[in-house]
Measured scan of single mutants.
Amino acid sequence: DHDVVPEDKFQETLHLKEKEGCPQAFHALLSWLLTQDSTAILDFWRVLFKDYNLERYGRLQPILDSFPKDVDLSQPRKGRKPPAVPKALVPPPRLPTKRKASEEARAAAPAALTPRGTASPGSQLKAKPPKKPESSAEQQRLPLGNGIQTMSASVQRAVAMSSGDVPGARGAVEGILIQQVFESGGSKKCIQVGGEFYTPSKFEDSGSGKNKARSSSGPKPLVRAKGAQGAAPGGGEARLGQQGSVPAPLALPSDPQLHQKNEDECAVCRDGGELICCDGCPRAFHLACLSPPLREIPSGTWRCSSCLQATVQEVQPRAEEPRPQEPPVETPLPPGLRSAGEEVRGPPGEPLAGMDTTLVYKHLPAPPSAAPLPGLDSSALHPLLCVGPEGQQNLAPGARCGVCGDGTDVLRCTHCAAAFHWRCHFPAGTSRPGTGLRCRSCSGDVTPAPVEGVLAPSPARLAPGPAKDDTASHEPALHRDDLESLLSEHTFDGILQWAIQSMARPAAPFPS
């Protein structure tokens, strides 16, 4: 592969990997390779389809078979030569091979799209000592099968071997295949498990690692696999990028399955594409389908809103127990993405979901129960707010008499603000006073009005108090039968009158 990737590009890729991570280095090298001529790309395919690569990765054979028959990708048995050289000459001794072996032994695996480039050397060096003999053996194999790289107009793939297949390693990572398949204008990513390549439709969760975000852009890794992070704060999961590491605690105790298979379609829109997988259930989501939507993949363990709600429900009964003089119970939860139609709101002032922060849900004790107040519409209280300059209440639009249902020339009671006709409430011909108009209920007259088809109010509507207090003497005590009587009149003013009279009014101040 030294004929494909020059030394300066190799060093530039290593520097970019240390600065921005393996995914960015892979993407940059792939983009550079696509700008080369067809001879360089053909050399790339020839390096990929060597015999030892085909033996190690069985899924490469179907890719090789898909090439046109007129494309010669065979390799000479006596060494490598550029395709432009007409004579089959043995190339001179390859010093770059020693360079590659020494550099890969030092860096474990470079971040390139060629056999030198995919593992994360920093994480491997940190986690190597417990498994040094086995990992050293794996390093000797890295130059042979560490990076199976493929690129063409139909298929483009980048393979990364790992030393996680050490025997006896619980939940060992089998390997990473960062794979971009450009077929019919689409893009897919796969993962390699035990020599087999699994596409998103049959993606397997190998051991402790999972394909957290099938994305090839942005600074985030394709698999949430930063070796420096180790395990999740809650004892979460091992990262795919942690090559040759000792077994780590796999999943939280509440995880239903340690080796679950995540779905390959969004649980909201039932469509495929780039998904984020939940650590607590097999569901996966688009970032845009979450509520609120996320802009980037959160670091650490992530769970959907259903799993978060289940966790909150487990903690909430203990938080609601009476604990005198104790601060509110704080339950730190990872930043969760909410699927459509589901929402768990945190306290005000918290950062938005999706940031690399930890939301704190506070379970406050329930407030003391209070008697429910009568629910009145805002339009129902409008007549009470229509007060004239002299303190006389004006008529609201649409006000109707509670007896006849007519809204023409209605009066407004100064005591309960109900609309009424003087002739309907006082049919006996009582003279109307000039000021202080009161309806039949507030004036103490319980004589029913002779209106055909309208039920008369119940005599129990009024329960006047002592006459010594004029204001308190007109406080009506309405009961269920009074409400039914008012409802039978089918008037809004009657219902409003009952609601206003049912509310307690402050006692009249004593004259000074």
Rank of each mutant, 00 (worst) to 15 (best):
F420T: 02
H479D: 09
I495T: 02
D482A: 01
R400A: 04
P317C: 07
Q313W: 15
E342V: 15
V446I: 09
P448F: 12
G453W: 15
D271W: 13
P433C: 15
P372L: 07
E326H: 09
E350L: 13
S254R: 10
H415Q: 11
T301C: 06
P448D: 13
Y361W: 07
T301F: 13
E314I: 12
G402E: 04
G375K: 12
L352K: 05
G354W: 15
P324V: 09
P247W: 00
A418R: 12
C424E: 02
G244N: 13
Q393R: 06
V387W: 14
Q309W: 15
H479R: 04
H474C: 07
G349Y: 12
T357V: 13
S299Q: 05
V451E: 05
M503K: 01
G494S: 06
P457S: 11
Q316S: 13
G391M: 03
S305I: 12
C404F: 03
S473T: 02
I495L: 05
S458P: 11
L333W: 14
T491R: 03
E350R: 11
F285P: 13
Q497D: 03
R438M: 14
H259E: 01
T447L: 10
S369A: 11
Y361S: 08
C266H: 04
H382L: 13
C269R: 04
A472H: 00
P365Q: 14
L437Y: 05
L437T: 05
P348F: 12
D482Y: 04
C439D: 00
E350A: 14
C307Y: 10
L352I: 05
Q260V: 09
G273A: 09
L287P: 08
D409L: 02
L287W: 06
H490F: 04
P292N: 05
P397D: 09
P476Y: 11
L373C: 14
V329H: 07
P332C: 11
P334E: 15
A508I: 14
S458Y: 14
V246Q: 00
G402D: 01
E350C: 12
M355F: 12
V268L: 10
E320V: 12
L373S: 08
C277I: 06
K362L: 14
G405A: 13
C278Y: 07
V315F: 10
G375S: 10
L294R: 11
S441Y: 06
A460W: 10
P509G: 09
T357E: 00
R438P: 08
P249N: 00
D356M: 01
Q393H: 12
